[in-house]
């Protein structure tokens, strides 16, 4: 297992290295780095000084190494607007985004697996067909559109839930969270549902497909032949089998949730890092933009790593192969 993790860590490092190169090339080479990194208000003299200070007169590989070195020390530039380190700004907003994404993930799994299994167990029932129609809609409707509709219905017309913001928060282990108070939950609910819909549709499809496949396997029939109760067959034999693809995909999709929270946060004015990004784009606060992209790439690589490890723990066949290798 340790060998396995070490090998995966090395692979992850390679991907981060490669992606940092891409982001660097993207921002520093394709775009004009002076435009991207220096405030528009700067005068000619400032620009000259900044170009020298940033080493933009140096050859490409030197520039890249400098970028890497600074990034490794956590220096991703300073915000023009807030005049604070960009990294710090993003880290401050991160808990809000993570809370939103995790809550959405939880909703997708907790609702999606039972609904998908139901649809897989009784594929011809009306309920199953409604579930599947719903999941097609969940797949095809753009998140922002659904968000606007939800806001209009539940906040503007019915007035049940607050339309924007995060509401009351409290600190747990130094992190701001909102799920501890009723007000916080009321604010969290709509954005989280909105963000989860796409993944919910995905989990439903995966669970349904998995259930339909597993339920016809000989080992399910054999479990029945042992006299094992229907509940145990569904909750142990079927569930454990479909958990493997669901966990893998859901884990991989967590990155997608963080990425898509940009949209949800913009709709519901949720004070997370996605909203910060869109605000920064509007305000041309480029160091924050660059920092956000770097961080999210890093996040993706970590997520992929964790999913790989989780997957190997869940599926004994993979675990064994990896241990042998």
């Amino acid at each position: 297992m340790t060998v396995f993790i070490i090998r995966r860590l090395m692979q992850a490092a390679v991907v981060v290295f490669f992606m940092s190169f891409l982001v660097f090339s993207g921002v520093f080479v394709i775009g004009d780095p002076v435009d991207i990194l220096i405030s528009d208000e700067a005068d000619e003299e400032d620009r000259e000084r900044a170009i020298a200070a940033l080493g933009l007169d140096k050859p490409f590989h030197i520039q890249y190494l400098r970028f890497l070195g600074k990034a490794l020390q956590g220096d991703l530039g300073e915000s023009f607007i807030f005049e604070e380190p960009a990294l710090l700004l993003i880290l401050e907003r991160m808990p809000a985004t993570m809370e939103l994404a995790l809550f959405a993930l939880l909703l997708a799994v907790v609702l999606g697996i039972p609904l998908g299994m139901w649809a897989g167990l009784k594929p011809d029932s009306v309920a199953a067909k409604s579930i599947m129609t719903g999941s097609i809609l969940g797949f095809s409707l753009p998140t922002f559109w659904v968000g606007i509709m939800m806001m209009m219905l539940f906040a503007v017309m019915l007035g049940w839930l607050p339309s924007t913001g995060r509401g009351e928060t409290s600190e747990i282990f130094g992190l701001e969270v909102s799920f501890t108070s009723w007000d916080g939950i009321r604010h969290l609910l709509m954005p989280a549902i909105n963000l989860s819909l796409f993944k919910l549709a995905l989990v439903i499809r995966l669970s349904r497909a998995g259930t339909k496949e597993v339920i016809h396997q000989d080992y399910i029939k054999f479990a029945r032949a042992k006299g094992v109760s229907r509940n145990r067959i569904i909750l142990v034999h079927v569930l454990k089998n479909i958990m493997i693809p669901v966990v893998t995909v859901i884990g991989l999709e967590f990155g997608g949730l963080v990425a898509f929270s940009i949209v949800t946060e913009t709709v519901f004015a949720w004070p997370g890092m996605g909203k910060l990004l869109i605000d920064s784009i509007g305000l041309l606060d480029r160091p924050v933009i660059v920092a956000y992209l770097t961080i999210i790439v890093f996040l993706f690589v970590i997520i992929n790593l964790v999913v790989d490890i989780l997957y190997s723990i869940l599926d004994p066949r993979v675990r064994l192969q990896e241990m042998k290798a």
Partner: peptide
Amino acid sequence: DMQLSFPAILIALVLLVTL
């Protein structure tokens, strides 16, 4: 594979922010 492991919206975002 690498490109598909990132959500489309993120890649589009990177491009549009730089371009």
